[in-house]
């Protein structure tokens, strides 16, 4: 079980974060100030730190700097209300590993934490992606080929990228902003409902001709690919 340190000064937010991450299978520890966070992270082993930037005492940036100066290399994910490019750049420059702007979806937070943990365990990250199967949908990443019930699906490159993202996170909710970032490399949330349309058209090809639906909408959360 991975151990997470959650540093958040606002008690209600901290409690909700902890509840969500505990439910997702993490062992969580809470800290409510910068000094508190530094003492805790240097005193106990953690696999990752979820760190609010605006904290009483040391700021999140200062906590990371102090951690790195003391040789503590635990991956850090910043949570911040500040979303300017300059703020993100600063966060990464100070030694953070990722930066998530509030408000965010918990599924995205969890996906980012999972990515940080994978980065910390190269054996897992390097594992060559084998053929993935969900229900009667088969994805062969090497041949860029998707078949359903033995029939090859005719997908555009972008549809394939989108489906691959959903397949990589099969069983987990993928948000619109994750799609915007992973499929389109957009550093902003695109206006309008274009991403919903993209998923809808993918679904037309993947699900419409078949009785068993694999791509599901979780309204308010995002999209999930799973064989229910």
């Amino acid at each position: 079980m991975f151990r997470l340190l959650i540093v958040e000064d606002e008690p209600a937010t901290a409690a909700e974060l902890a509840a969500g991450l505990t439910r997702a299978g993490y062992h969580t520890t809470l800290a409510h100030s910068g000094d508190d966070a530094l003492l805790t992270v240097l005193g106990q082993p953690f696999d990752a730190v979820v760190l609010d930037v605006m904290l009483p005492g040391f700021s999140g940036f200062e906590v990371v700097r102090a951690m790195r100066e003391r040789g503590c290399g635990v991956p850090v994910l910043f949570l911040s209300a500040l979303g300017a490019v300059a703020d993100r750049v600063r966060g990464l420059h100070e030694g953070g590993d990722d930066y998530l702007v509030k408000p965010f979806a918990q599924s995205e937070l969890q996906a980012r934490i999972a990515a940080l943990l994978r980065r910390g365990h190269p054996s897992q990250a390097a594992a060559a992606p084998a053929v993935v199967q969900v229900g009667d949908l088969t994805w062969d990443p090497h041949q860029q080929r998707v078949t359903r019930a033995g029939k090859r699906l005719d997908l555009t490159p972008n549809e394939l990228t989108l489906l691959a993202l959903l397949l990589e996170h099969r069983g987990q909710v993928v948000t619109r902003s994750q799609i915007a970032r992973s499929v389109w490399q957009l550093e902003f949330e695109p206006p309008g409902n274009t991403i919903d349309v993209q998923v809808r058209r993918l679904r037309n090809k993947v699900d419409d001709p078949y009785d068993r639906k694999l791509i599901h909408t979780r309204r308010g959360f995002g999209y999930v690919l799973e064989d229910l």
């Binding site: 209600a12 937010t13 909700e16 969500g20 439910r23 979303g83 509030k102 408000p103």
Partner: peptide, 16 residues
Amino acid sequence: RTPLNLLRLRLENLGL
């Protein structure tokens, strides 16, 4: 953003 974030976390946890 802080209260919006809290609101989102609460509702999500409620739904999950």
